[in-house]
Amino acid sequence: MNIFRFLGDMSHILSFVILLLKITQGKSAAGISLRTQELYMIVFCSRYLDLFWNFSSLYNSFLKVVFIACSSAIVYIIRFKSPQKDTWNPELDNFPIQYLIGPCAVAGLLINQDWTPFEMIWAFSIYLEAVAILPQLFLLQKQGEVENLTSHYVAALGAYRGLYLMNWVYRYFTEDDYLQRIVWFAGTVQTGLYIDFFYHYYQSKRGGLSRPVKLP
């Protein structure tokens, strides 16, 4: 464990807290992509299948359960719970996620660590996580203006990715046996997707102002 990874995980948890607060307290899922949340649920459920046979630490196992529980709760609330379900707009949030899931599944089958079923599923989850934010970013782009809590949510997710990048660099230089090409590649792609958002986030929040983020 290093400080980058720990802060990355905390930032990830913060993103769940922000989103859960927004949809439970604000009673609205407007501006939130259910498609992205469903992708995250698939990502966590497939990657953390190894909860049943891999044990690395209590910290890890506990957070795996937290991530599965939070993403499932978010999907459940937006899809089935009133009044939130009526605030979800399927016409706006219509990114064709089959075009993300399909290629990631093929990539998982072809490019993985050692050709075992779990390694294929695991690689699939890594590839899918890299692109899972796309429906959310497209939704924000369509709306043009992003509500504060939603922008904080995306910013927390982006911070998590950025901190994980630093964690990989740190581990590469401090550990002898640390080499994870699949994770590094997918993680770099994923972090890159946030760059444009962060530019606009910075523009609207600088100087202590709390204006909504405007996207062109």
Partner: peptide, 10 residues
């Protein structure tokens, strides 16, 4: 050689 990485990250 290198051992496969442990899955110790989230």
């Amino acid at each position: 050689g290198k051992t496969p990485p442990k899955k110790d990250e989230l």
